[in-house]
Design a protein around this nucleic acid. Structure first.
Length: 575
RNA sequence: GCGCCUGUGGCUCAGUAGGAUAGAGCGCAGCCCUGCGGAGGCUGAGGUCGCGGGUUCGAAUCCCGCCAGGCGUACCA
């Protein structure tokens, strides 16, 4: 990349000046090169002289001048300037910029892709919402974040696998089953009270109705013992009925979640069942060999497991944690943490991902340190696990706060939102904020602004381009031989400067794991294009210029499509 | 109490490993269609970057202390 090239060239210049005794010999700091905010300061700038001034006991400007004497910029640049109070600025050559248009056209849709990931295998786990109810608006955030990140990482040369971890066992599933059983019986006309901690959402009633319709009353147990097999106790039969219902219900909810995600243009490569972690390896005898067993054996070998107060603990204090954590409750059942250990054992040691990215909500933030400790215990370097904590989404309707709870049943579903504003608006909205900042989602505002929205601004730019290209085609203009060196005005060159930012943006998002830079880039690119469009007539009497500009327009279309697709959004030909 | 995140114009948010006059969208006040899509372009008003110290040639950015909000601190997930 150009920044690295410039940094290297600056380093060389300083070393040369030092060798010739023009600058004091000091150890060099890391040389940074950036895009100045003000275009008058060039395309790239470095404040290196300012940093050297103290160690060299010279004025920054004097240092800048000495460096300037020795600097030989890469071929992409023509001008080097020094500016007060001690900056060195670089300018890209116009003909090089023009040439980039050709190179974008040649690269096509894959423009901006890189090999920097070197094919290393990354697993990205996100959403992973308990399948006890439909996704609500807040869940959309992780979904959009994760899927966009996956797109960008792929573009940056990583081999990415997207995974949804399905919590299909444990307390919540039990109470889901009991709630469904109660609703089911109510559907059959029985007076059954809802237990505490029940899932009270209407969707549970609908679910029960569907099951009654399709399967009748076969899961019901009447007082006369109908539905009981011979020698079967009512309690046990009821337990079985509940778990059968839970299984059916779960499958349906998961199906619904898949559909909702599909609407948002989110999909997964793997749906990983928590329960499967406890399944014995069929290859091995004795019922051993489950992922859970293997992980626990590792912890045990490391001496991190202890029995205390009837429960089994992971002694994370030995690894610098604040406190120990329970693995097996006193009733012998594994905790969520135990499952997560087995799960991450599986990710790292069985499936051998080199990097694992987990996207969690802020309510899981306290979980991070013990996960890192657990990895140490498993012998995995903790930095291979990257956890993105995504701050919570609070919902509002105007002034009124909406509490989201699946249990109480007051949910604004993701589906409702998508139906209302469309997937593209939804995606851009979630993407535009950094994961670190919590967001207030005003549903009223989202609906109101859905017409006057950055989404349409960017897509409009794309559609406008499509329209220009349609017209060109209609007039049978073949611009394949267009001469890009005719692009010379300020709006044209500014546009090119924006286009070639894409590779940097992809690289940045891939390393920082912060996809919120994409929407800002997209918007900026659209702005520069609209402005270019206003100032530069594309299809005109000047045939040669027309062809050159058509090339530029087509290149812009490629880049716009690329960003939109990275964000999981559509690029409409008309709107 | 302790830990993590946040606090930037009326509103919603950016601000790139400290850098040259703090940016955008929405809203507000104006201007621009005898040519390719006006879902557009251009101009303007509006900011003690929560508060107070410190480090530095230079701080929205780093350090410390306060204040405010969110989340966590379970043998819940």
């Amino acid at each position: 990349m150009l920044k690295e090239k410039l940094a290297a060239c600056l380093r060389e210049a300083v070393l040369e000046a030092q060798q010739q005794g023009e600058l004091v010999t000091t150890t060099l700091p890391e040389i940074t090169v950036e895009h100045p905010q003000n275009p008058e300061h060039g395309d790239f700038a470095s404040g290196l002289p300012l940093k050297l001034a103290r160690g060299m006991r010279m004025s920054p400007m004097a240092i800048a001048e000495r460096i300037y004497e020795h600097v030989s910029p890469p071929s992409e640049f023509d001008k080097v300037m020094i500016a007060s109070p001690g900056f060195i600025n670089f300018n890209l050559r116009d003909d090089w910029l023009c040439g980039q248009v050709t190179s974008i056209l040649e690269t096509g849709e894959s423009y901006g892709a890189s090999l920097s990931g070197k094919g290393s295998r990354v697993q990205l786990e996100f959403v992973s919402v308990n399948p006890t109810g439909p996704l609500h608006v807040g869940h959309g955030r992780g979904a959009v974040l994760g899927s966009t990140l996956a797109n960008v990482l792929s573009a940056a040369g990583y081999s990415v696998e997207k995974e949804y971890y399905v919590n299909d066992m444990g307390n919540q599933i039990d109470s889901f089953g009991r709630s469904l059983y109660a609703r089911y019986q109510q559907c059959l006309g029985k007076e059954v009270a809802m237990l505490p901690n029940s899932y009270l959402g209407d969707y549970m009633i609908d679910l029960a109705k569907e099951i009654v319709q399709e399967q009748g009353d076969k899961f019901s147990l009447s007082l006369e013992g109908r539905g009981l097999g011979e020698g079967e106790s009512p309690l046990r039969a009821e337990g079985e009925a509940i778990s059968e219902l839970a299984k059916i219900g779960l499958a349906r909810i998961i199906q619904g979640i898949k559909e909702d995600l599909k609407l948002l243009n989110v999909d997964f490569d793997v749906w990983f069942s928590e329960k499967s972690l406890y399944r014995p390896d069929p290859e091995q005898s004795e019922g051993e060999g489950s992922q859970y067993h293997k992980a626990m054996a590792l912890l045990q070998d490391g001496g991190y497991v202890a029995k205390k107060e009837n429960a089994t603990w992971f002694e994370s204090t030995a690894l610098g944690e604040d406190k120990d954590n329970v693995l097996l409750r006193s009733d012998g059942s594994p905790t969520y943490f135990a499952s997560d250990i087995a799960y991450h054992y599986n990710k790292f040691l069985e499936r051998r991902f080199s990097t694992v990215i987990d996207i969690w909500g802020a309510d899981h933030q306290g979980h991070v340190p013990r996960m890192k400790a657990m990895l140490k215990a498993l012998g995995v370097a903790p930095e291979h696990l990257k956890v993105i904590i995504c701050q919570l989404v609070t919902l509002r309707r105007g002034k009124e706060m909406v509490k989201v709870s699946k249990r109480s049943g007051d949910i604004v579903t993701l589906r409702e939102l998508i139906d209302e504003v469309g997937p593209d608006v939804c995606r851009l909205f979630f993407l535009s904020r950094s994961a670190d900042s919590q967001m207030d989602f005003d549903i009223e505002l989202a609906k109101k602004q859905s017409v006057d929205n950055p989404v349409y601004y960017v897509q409009y730019a794309y559609a406008r381009i499509a329209s220009i290209l349609r017209l060109a085609k209609q007039q049978r203009i073949d611009y394949a031989q267009g001469d890009v060196s005719l692009l010379s005005t300020e709006p044209e060159l500014t546009l090119i400067r924006r286009l070639i930012l894409l590779p940097e943006i992809i690289e940045e998002v891939a390393t920082t794991l912060e996809p919120h830079h994409l929407p800002y880039y997209a918007q900026d690119l659209a702005t520069v294009f609209h402005s270019f469009y206003k100032q530069c007539r594309v299809i005109s009497q000047d045939e040669e210029l027309t062809k050159a500009r058509l090339k530029l327009v087509r290149a812009t279309q490629i880049v716009l499509a690329r960003v939109l697709h990275l964000m999981g959004m559509t690029a409409p030909e008309r709107m």
